[in-house]
Amino acid sequence: MEILENKNSNDPIKEAVEFGIDLTLFYERLELTPTQRIEKHQQILSFVEELRRASGKKNG
């Protein structure tokens, strides 16, 4: 996490963290190949769509 340390006032990393973006997950994605990144994204999207469907059934 040393790389996340703030070195100056206009630090985009600090700004992102303060904005609420969890950059720790970025390091995990960095280890993946481009194809693995797409596949991981597809898994997350499938989960989101499943949640939406479930929410729709419950509310509708």
Binding site: I3, P12, I13, E15, A16, V17, F19, I21, F26
Partner: peptide
């Protein structure tokens, strides 16, 4: 954009 700028910096 905030995330992309941070990733570029990292």
């Amino acid at each position: 954009l905030k995330e992309l700028e941070a990733i570029l910096e990292i």
